[in-house]
Each structure stands twice: as structure tokens, then as C-alpha cells.
Design a protein around this nucleic acid. Structure first.
Lengths: 191, 191
DNA sequence: CGGTCTCTTGACGGAGTTCAAAGCTAGTGG
DNA sequence: CCACTAGCTTTGAACTCCGTCAAGAGACCG
């Protein structure tokens, strides 16, 4: 269980068996229930979260009161509002558990201490952010290039198990469409 | 001129006056003309580019043959297709100069050597990617939350000088609208 | 079982696209 | 330095994707 973070770190940087427990000590392991909020819009995003088990999502509420999901965080992903986390400013987003989840959390100060004491962790976080940045680039490509219908087909054929796992209204809010229209698309695809 | 990169690095990590020239030696300084391509769709994105002067853009061509601009790279920004750069796989994007530009370029191998020799550069690149990742999150928020009209108003009041600087069809391709509709919006706003 | 949350269905409306054509601007060569 | 041309911008009409609203049908949980 608690090995998943260490395993992930070791994909990108060196960490001896002696160092591993010392690194782990910087993190808080927390468990959240379905629909529990990790921080709300307007609060500062103090923690950077690594998902060990379960699924988180980051969303905001638009002017009409509709929730829009910007990002999901599945197992082995980091999630935070990095603008708020870095600059200690109120977040424009809310982070919430989609289902019961187990996380490692680290606050900004503690992360800085970790990086000072274990400089090889800079490389790890560089790779995490670089990968996330690359994922955002691809995400933007899909959002721009495809119609909402094509987006849905593309997404549900790429991640069929994930589409099964989450409720449809969340998928709709991630694809940027209404639940009604998603329902119409599903009906069209089955026939 | 050649000081801008060093100045930028020093915002995020330590670099002595002795080290600075050694670090600079890892980069190639290049100049590109307006509309010159740095790499095309389908080629591997071998270089990571730092813009000293000018402006680059990263775009792709959708199924209908329309160019969609995913990102601009202005002065003091890094730009690359990081998926292609990291994994040495064909890029889904094309990087092009919007205007005459001066760049520092570093290829993957050389960047790895630089990181090995100057480990503090891991911190620098971590910060660059973290900032870019945060910017993508905000970008997604705007794309989801606002109508295209609101997006245009928001963007042109936030970056009026940039809107003047680039041709309108590029702005349209960045906002995800047609040049025709952008033209309509402009007419509406002036009156 | 009862109530709340989720998904479906259908009619209507509007933001934004498509197509076509004319006006404008800037770069290029003479 | 001017003229010409290619590319950029504007305008307008028809169309379409997708949102909105409303109402009903399931599904899940106490």
C-alpha cells in the first residue's frame, strides 16, 4: 500500500532503501470519503496530493452555477491547484473525492524541506510536472480539434473502464457538455 | 541579450558567476524568421526552446484542415511538445515563429547532461514546468467556463498589447473560433 | 417502501460555423 | 517608391450543433 509512492518515485529518480522511510515521513497519509472536499473554491490549496487509491477531481463553478471538471486524479497521479499552492493565493478551484480515496498529502513548507534534504526529489517533481504539462497539451488539442460528439467517442473508446467507473454527470462536466446531450450521444452510439 | 536566460534561471535557483557561462554553453542560440517552422507535425520535437526575443506558437491541423493554436511562447517562456521531447515520439504539433525570434535551444541528450552536471537546474526546470502546468489549469478553466465572446473580451482586456501584436486569424485560432466570428465580435465591441 | 439523486426524452432557441464574395493591407519585385 | 498581388479582414445569409427547460423514468439508500 504505502509502497506505491516510493515505487512511483523510483521510476524517475534514485532512492535507497535507507532513504525511503525518511522521505515517506514528510507525507501525511489521509483517507477521504466519497464527495468529501479537500479544499473549496476561495480557500488556499495548501496541499499537493498523490492518489494511492481512488479518484479525485478538480472543478469550479461557472457563472450559471454549473460545475465544470478540469481534471481527474486517478491512482499514481498528483493533483493540486498549483497556482494557489505555489503563490499561497485563494484557489479558483475545488478538489473533491469522486469515490473513497487514500492519499499522500504534503504542504508547501514541508515539500520545500523535503526538496532541500533530498535534492534528487527535484528531479522527481520535475518529471511529474513535465508529464502533467504534456498531458495538458494533449488535452487542449482534443478540446480544440474535435466536436463534442467526437470527443465523447474518443474518450470512451480510450478509457472504457473509467467511463464505467464514474457517474455520467461527471463525465459530461469533464467533456464540457450537458448531461442531457451526453445522454443523447450515448443513445446514438448504442443503436 | 544572452543574459536573459541566466537572469531567468536565477529567479528560481542559485547559479554563480563562474557557473553561468558553463551552463550557457549547453545551449544553441538560434534566430528564426517569421513563419519559419522549428519542427513539423509528425517529426520528433528534439529541442526545448527558450524565447529570448519574439514569439513562437504551437499548433496542429484538425481534420478539416484548420490550424488550431494550442500555445504561444513569448519572451521568457519555454515551449516544446513535451510528450514528443521526452518520449522521442512523433509530435502531434508544429512549432512555428509568429515573428522574427531569437531562441535558446537544447536537445534532450544535452539537457540530461546539463542536469547531471548542474543538479540545481532540476529545480529550475521543475519550476518552469510547474508554472506552465498551473497556466494550463487556468487556461482550461477559461475555455470551459466562458462563452467564446466572454473569452475574447477577457483575453483582449488582459493582454491588449499582445492582441495588437499578432494577426487576428492567429488570435481566432487560439480562442477556438473562426476569423469571421472574431471579426463580428470586434465590430460589436467597438460600437 | 418513500424520497432524493441520476439518467432519459423531446421541443425549442441561440451561439457560433460555413460558404461566398467583396474590401483592405502589406510585402515584393520592378 | 510605386504597383501588383496574395493574404488578411469584413459582411451577410443559411445552417447546425448543442444548451435550456420541463417532465418523466429509474436507481439507490435509509
Amino acid at each position: 500500500m504505502s509502497e506505491t509512492l516510493i515505487t512511483h518515485i523510483r521510476k524517475f529518480t534514485r532512492l535507497s532503501d535507507d532513504e525511503a522511510p525518511a522521505v515517506l515521513a514528510f507525507f501525511k497519509e489521509i483517507e477521504v470519503r466519497k464527495k468529501e472536499n479537500l479544499h473549496k473554491e476561495g480557500q488556499i490549496c495548501r496541499y499537493n496530493y498523490f492518489v494511492t487509491e481512488g479518484c479525485l477531481r478538480m472543478f469550479f463553478v461557472d457563472e450559471k452555477g454549473v460545475e465544470k471538471t478540469v481534471q481527474f486524479g486517478l491512482e499514481h497521479w498528483w493533483i493540486a491547484d498549483y497556482f494557489s499552492f505555489q503563490r499561497h493565493q485563494p484557489s479558483a478551484f475545488c478538489i473533491q473525492a469522486v469515490e473513497r480515496s487514500v492519499l499522500y498529502a504534503i504542504d508547501f513548507q514541508t515539500q520545500e524541506q523535503l526538496l532541500e534534504q533530498f535534492p534528487q526529489m527535484e528531479r522527481y517533481f520535475r518529471m511529474v510536472h513535465q508529464t502533467a504539462h504534456a498531458a495538458s497539451q494533449m488535452r487542449l488539442k482534443f478540446l480544440y480539434g474535435y466536436s463534442r460528439e467526437a470527443l465523447y467517442r474518443q474518450f470512451s473508446s480510450s478509457f472504457p473502464e473509467f467511463v464505467q467507473r464514474i457517474p455520467q454527470y461527471l463525465l459530461a462536466s469533464y467533456l464540457g457538455i450537458t448531461p442531457e446531450y451526453l445522454s443523447e450521444l450515448r443513445a446514438k452510439n448504442i443503436s
